[in-house]
């Protein structure tokens, strides 16, 4: 009896241990570092200097706040645009047409492609010396590469957003298509029979039905785009730069004292994402309780 009681906790033990040590251990150590705890440098006093330095010092504050704004903008725009496009494409792909299988395959093709490859692809296609610029030049639309609009390494993060949209649209698509397939079209048929036109069916039936799944996917994409550095490192500019790139710069700084600032920035990113996840969980729980 007592063995049965402990069986499941014991079986879960190794996994829980790995999570505790690797995840919470490193998180805890990172947090200590962000508070200035670096015994190898002789710093054992805990304080919030690194946080204050990152957010309010003359040296870093303008980079931080501009970077925070850009990070929010890129994460929000990438999530919203890819979700909206994925819904539109998934609704189109639900219809029956010649070549549907090929279209679905192409739609999901970039799912296994690494973000890094997508970012480099963006430069090859969308930069001022890229494929589109050359085609535009050949067609006589522009006379020099400089006339081609700056779509990558731009201060508004358009290149980064395009890369994320290109990549995440397939992720959203696979989720939305799965939801639509499981729902079928009966609810929409019922709404249509009750007088709902195409837009009303989408607004009042399809969207609310796919919203829970879409929200979960959105929080994943938002958290990911908020916290990763590869794509903005390749496609972004030095100022403003997204917060994960700024954190990377701190880590790569030969001055080891900058580690604390890097960690503080990473913790800030994590806390922002965590707050957003908690807000999402609160909204979901309330929605589930209601409906």
């Amino acid at each position: 009896m007592s063995w049965e009681r402990w069986r499941i906790p014991l079986m879960l033990g190794p996994t829980v241990l790995i999570i505790l040590v690797l995840f919470f251990g490193s998180l805890g150590f990172g947090f200590l570092q962000s508070l200035g705890f670096q015994p190898q440098l002789g710093n054992t006093e805990l304080n919030f200097d690194a946080y204050i330095s990152v957010m309010f010092s003359e040296e870093h504050s303008s980079r931080f706040w501009a970077g925070l704004l850009l990070t929010f903008w890129v994460a929000f725009a990438s999530t919203f645009i890819s979700a909206a496009l994925a819904i539109a494409i998934a609704l189109l792909l639900r219809r029956t047409f010649f070549g549907k299988r090929l279209a679905v395959f192409l739609f999901q093709l970039n799912l296994p492609i690494p973000h890094l490859v997508i970012a480099i692809g963006m430069i090859l296609v969308f930069s001022q010396s890229g494929l589109l610029s050359r085609v535009a030049g050949e067609l006589g639309l522009i006379s020099s590469p400089r006339e081609f609009p700056v779509l990558v390494r731009d201060s508004s993060g358009i290149g980064i957003i395009l890369a994320y949209v290109w990549k995440e649209i397939a992720f959203f698509g696979i989720i939305v298509m799965a939801i639509l397939q499981s729902l079928g079209e009966d609810y929409e048929a019922a709404a249509q029979s009750l007088g709902a036109n195409r837009w009303q069916r989408f607004r009042y039936v399809t969207l609310p039905l796919i919203m829970p799944g879409l929200m979960s996917a959105s929080i994943i994409v938002f958290a990911f785009t908020f916290g990763t550095y590869e794509v903005p490192r390749i496609l972004g500019v030095r100022h403003p730069e997204m917060l994960p790139v700024m954190a990377l710069d701190f880590f790569l700084n030969p001055d080891l004292n900058a580690r604390a600032e890097g960690m503080a920035l990473s913790i800030i990113i994590a806390v922002i994402v965590l707050i957003l996840v908690l807000i999402y969980m609160y909204i979901s729980a309330r929605t589930i309780r209601r409906g």
């Binding site: 009750l194 007088g195 039905l209 409906g291």
Partner: peptide, 28 residues
């Protein structure tokens, strides 16, 4: 269909799960 005035009640009811009963009834 939305302009025919032929309204169908489905076998599995298909009430919108995210709406209240009142909102469902008032949908049309």
């Amino acid at each position: 269909p939305e302009k025919r005035g032929a309204v169908m009640v489905f076998q599995n009811y298909l009430l919108f799960p995210y709406m209240s009963v009142g909102q469902n009834v008032g949908f049309g």
